[in-house]
Design a protein around this nucleic acid. Sequence first.
DNA 1: ATCCTCCGTGTAATCGATTCCACGAGGAGG
DNA 2: CCTCCTCGTGGAATCGATTACACGGAGGAT
Lengths: 347, 347
Amino acid sequence: MASIKDVAAEAGVSVATVSRALNGHPSVSPAARARVLAAVETLGYRPNAVARSLRTDQTRTLGLVISDVMNPYFTELARSVEEEARALGYSVIIGNADERPDLQDHHVTTLLDRRIDGLLVSPTDGGSPRMLEAARAGTPMVFVDRWIPGVDVPVVRSDGRAAVRDLVAHLHGLGHRRLAIIAGPAATTTGRERVDAFREALAAYGLPLPDAYIGQGDFQAGSGRRVTEGFLDLPEPPEVVFAADNLMALGALDAVRARGLRVPEDIGLAAFDDIPWFLHTGPPVTAIAQPTRDLGRAAVRALVERIAGRAGASVTLPARLVVRRSCGEPDGTTPHQSPSPVRRSTP
Amino acid sequence: MASIKDVAAEAGVSVATVSRALNGHPSVSPAARARVLAAVETLGYRPNAVARSLRTDQTRTLGLVISDVMNPYFTELARSVEEEARALGYSVIIGNADERPDLQDHHVTTLLDRRIDGLLVSPTDGGSPRMLEAARAGTPMVFVDRWIPGVDVPVVRSDGRAAVRDLVAHLHGLGHRRLAIIAGPAATTTGRERVDAFREALAAYGLPLPDAYIGQGDFQAGSGRRVTEGFLDLPEPPEVVFAADNLMALGALDAVRARGLRVPEDIGLAAFDDIPWFLHTGPPVTAIAQPTRDLGRAAVRALVERIAGRAGASVTLPARLVVRRSCGEPDGTTPHQSPSPVRRSTP
DNA sequence: ATCCTCCGTGTAATCGATTCCACGAGGAGG
DNA sequence: CCTCCTCGTGGAATCGATTACACGGAGGAT
């Protein structure tokens, strides 16, 4: 592979001039610039990003450590992150933690070793020593979706509280009273928050959330299935199950079908995170949609701010309820009064 | 960030000794090694991968350029590629081409600039100049899923021919005669092959594949929807639509629902690529499943062989038909005789 | 006792870029 | 005509690692 020296030799100038010509430095004569460009062309020269990074101490690369690539929500997030980063001249290296703290650590370490300019993390757990250390050491960092309390890092996330209230109002309006939740891991903020929001919303209607109606999941399909089976085995099963993410909702659907039961006739289902497939399941699933694209964009912008040495503000965007048929057929009128916008979506 | 010099100073040895101690070089005294390790510990030193890459001319990084990250098939592929690469001590940088040749080119260029050790590509088109140039220049490269004819690069892919025959046999057994296909882009090998396989299989039953029953899609949901609408507008619409990938099947489902029609009563649907969601759609979709995990693994192994300077053989793995309910209810007996294994899957 | 070998270590070159500093030529101003 | 500044350019240091080569000392063979 041709190096800058080869280009210099071909153009009959020094490497300094080649570098300047290629980086748009003002004091290069038009003649020299032209010769350099011609040499670059004939040799098919491309600057070595590794060497450049070593010298300039910046890689123009962002690291993104997400909890689970197979989860469509995170896939979409990753995609929007990459898009925005590309627009800003950065590349993105994605690390898939698969909801495993050890893997998350592995990726954080690898990315730091590669001297990425900034790190975007959706933490799987309460924060590994390596990550906390990185945050303290001053690595530009931003949390997306999930975060770790007590760490001075901007957080870009979606607030589902209002949407969960809308969901409970919707369910209440449909006549449902026994509502259960498949929770995410308590080690994650989203795992805790969604349960809290659900409990609060229920309380507003004077409904209880008994322990038997809180199933402990891990944001993966298998746990959704197991928890739902547990619910169905209860002497008094819930009328509706609310899954704290889309994968656990999928597992719940599995469990219901495996018993030969139907949604929503035998049991209702709602999910946090809306994904394209929910339109096509039998029946279409009522879900809480996050503004995923905007979250990705905002996260990258905040991170780039941090890299530039500025503050980089936290951002919280509202989620919204998307009503479909999985909790029972609405009767055609608004099922509840709510100040926040509720989109009715029927395929 | 602490560098090797700091470690050397702290341990009271030279940088050469530090490097040797850290890389397991035999001629380092136990005493020196211990002092180095202690210094590394107190300073929290981590080797700078950028500097190492520059010197050793290897990044221990693989590039993966895929056609569309939002497609669950490619997501799973990416995941298995990363897993196998990690097991072999490599990192993976994923580039999402979004079925756009220009984006594909952008990623290939960026990855090459970063001096990745090898490139895994699922080409979006017939091969951009940049990619062909890279292949010729001797960059270790392997095609996965799709490939470009006439280029001397190993191909790791799945052969769906037998499975497509099984599918047509299944459809024929159910009494269907008017079969249509939503094809992928003719610029891709998978786009062409699946149509060819379908046509051949039909011919074996004396069935025609009229031009009106070949819809041109682009592997994205929108095109599946448009093409299906076209089929439904035909004076004699097909009895079954076979989508050449899962996203176009999703679009087809959309189109059918939008008309208020039902699958499979009004029109049957089958898809190439099986994904978890097909179990949960209404109705569950009959699909051709590729051994995605194995493909990813094999691709990485072939690429690593190439990097090591060895040949790196092409691999072709068979796909298999997974019968569900979207083409009509099987009557409970084997719908056809087939030498290859057919799994019956009902949720 | 002497010489050779081997072991542990350090010095310095190197990878491919960027960038500080110096230098020569040419133009402007006195 | 001399001085000073500006502009374009080249030489060389630098980033942080790896590694060839040199060297001193210890131990074994004769």
